[in-house]
Design a protein around this nucleic acid. Structure first.
Lengths: 305, 305
DNA sequence: TAGCAACTTGAATCTACCG
DNA sequence: CCGGTAGATTCAAGTTGCT
């Protein structure tokens, strides 16, 4: 269990693989070599007073808890790579807690560049009514990089304009594109270029996505299209995506579906198992595809834990 | 020029007035008495390296520059009042500057409660294309208060419901009626709820507003509906609204139009003049109205500190 | 098959209450 | 007075089932 994880770097795009590892990413990440990951997309356990899945990190201890983990992420991320952190501070005692702000400042001290803050606008947010606030309908997607130059495939997330845009259905337009892609399964097969004939426009830093209510029991809370968007934007097919807090495995699912290699880590065996289950059909597809090249090599890679 | 500004507090709603004052709000606000303002809505000069309207505050000096001004705002704001700060950090050297985060932390130290962060989603944002980021389509509207209990008229900003309501309106099921009875309790409130509650829903903390392209040349970039929303939400008619950084006067215009008294301050005489021009038609109405009651009494109130 | 209706379920947050 | 839990509130999207 303590042997190093092989580097995913320098693989050809056809040699896709996925590793879902059990453990605390603060330790598991030490088994990854330097600069071996192209993109980190994760939604860490939110600070919480109650005891919960990750042991419940208290808001006041959150930055302190996170920093050793982001230090490892910094090490394993390639120089031109990106780190996308989906997070939102809770309201406590009538006001927003500041641990996310403090985390941003601390990450900058750690060497990260705070390149951008994307807003995920949740169209269907949690219900409720309070005398001092409305429902919280947005979360931060903080974009950090290691250097000013990094990989960004803007064309890959262009959205159709024209007929759609005029009818104020901005979210539906983007959604349809994403849904189309996810149905297809991976980026090799279909391309957004199929939507040619319409004018395409670059999106903004505000993402309109509904949360998926489908997954019950497990708090997905993270629509598939969210990691998909960042994966298409910040990686090429065959690149390596890392999610150090797998949870229900949405990022892993998105990365595999888009033809990226993926490393997932979680402390809870329940999540690890569930995530591996999700990948079985995808791995099947990859096997077929890879079989054209070298079955023995690929199956060995895929089946190894 | 150094005489105290009369208190706008304790006026009857019919005695609306507006004062547009020339000077730096750090000094001008000293002429206002304690706890005399119900709401502060402002879009301060953004940090900028270049010399610009407000003398160009450098990002690194921004917090230091702002704090003496917010200290005065804290003093003049009523206990149940609100302070809405529209702001967005610039990108500098390829990354977002942190002065807004630092400002939030500093304001908390100053005694403010960081109650909420609303997102203003700019539907039509500034065009442009860069290799490392998309167009910036959102700004922060930071909501600070002096205490946990504050005035919030949620009903005043309710919005029509989505398609869900339209299908629902056709036939109200038993469940709706029963739920309704138990929740509301009396017939009068029930009628109001029937009139408003069925097809209207509370908004979220994400505001969808297009920027108004109308005002050219002046760096307003602040749609009238944005201050209108907060003014309706956090004040009653007749309350006193303050904008210490008037600029093109959008907040002042909104407040007057909604029947609130208003105090505006700006260092540039050009903005002060323009803002007063905007208010002339409104003031005419106010004068007529006030004259009907008691001119002597009103003038007396004006001169009282 | 399309369309409507009823039901279910959320990474929520407040107040009230208890030990 | 602090810390923890229970109860109430509320709406968009998905799911299921019927016509």
């Amino acid at each position: 269990m303590n042997h190093p994880i092989p580097s995913f770097a320098n693989w050809s795009p056809s040699d896709l693989k996925s590793e879902i590892l059990l453990g605390d990413c603060a330790e598991v990440l030490q088994r990854l070599p330097n600069e071996s990951v192209d993109l980190i997309v994760t939604s860490p356990p939110y600070a919480d007073q109650r005891k919960s899945t990750y042991g419940g990190i208290h808001p006041d201890k959150y930055v302190e808890w996170m920093l050793p983990r982001t230090a490892q992420m910094f090490r394993v991320l390639k120089d031109g790579g990106s780190f996308v952190l989906n997070i939102k501070e809770k309201a406590m005692d009538g006001q927003r807690h500041t641990y996310v702000l403090e985390l941003i400042l601390a990450l900058k001290k750690q060497g990260w560049l705070w390149t951008e803050e994307y807003v995920w606008h949740k169209r269907n947010c949690y219900p409720g009514k309070w005398p001092n606030r409305f429902r919280d309908a947005w979360e931060r997607c903080l974009h950090f990089t290691k250097s000013r130059k990094f990989k960004m495939n803007q064309q890959s997330v262009m959205v159709p304009m024209g007929d759609w845009a005029q009818t104020r259905l901005k979210s539906l337009g983007k959604n349809d594109v994403l849904r189309h892609d996810s149905q297809v399964g991976n980026a090799f097969a279909k391309n957004i270029a199929n939507w040619q004939g319409r004018d395409m426009a670059y999106p903004t830093n505000v993402l309109h996505l509904a949360t998926e209510c489908g997954n019950k029991g497990h708090s997905a809370a993270f629509p598939l299209s969210l990691p998909q968007w960042f994966i298409k934007l910040f990686t090429d097919p065959g690149d390596v995506v890392l999610d150090p807090f797998v949870g229900s495995g949405t990022t892993v699912e998105a990365a595999s579906g888009l033809g990226r290699s993926v490393i997932g880590i979680d402390v809870l065996d329940e999540y690890v198992q569930m995530c591996r289950q999700k990948l079985i059909p995808v791995q099947g597809v990859l096997l077929e595809k890879a079989a054209k090249y070298n079955v023995d090599q690929v199956s060995q890679k895929i089946c190894r834990r």
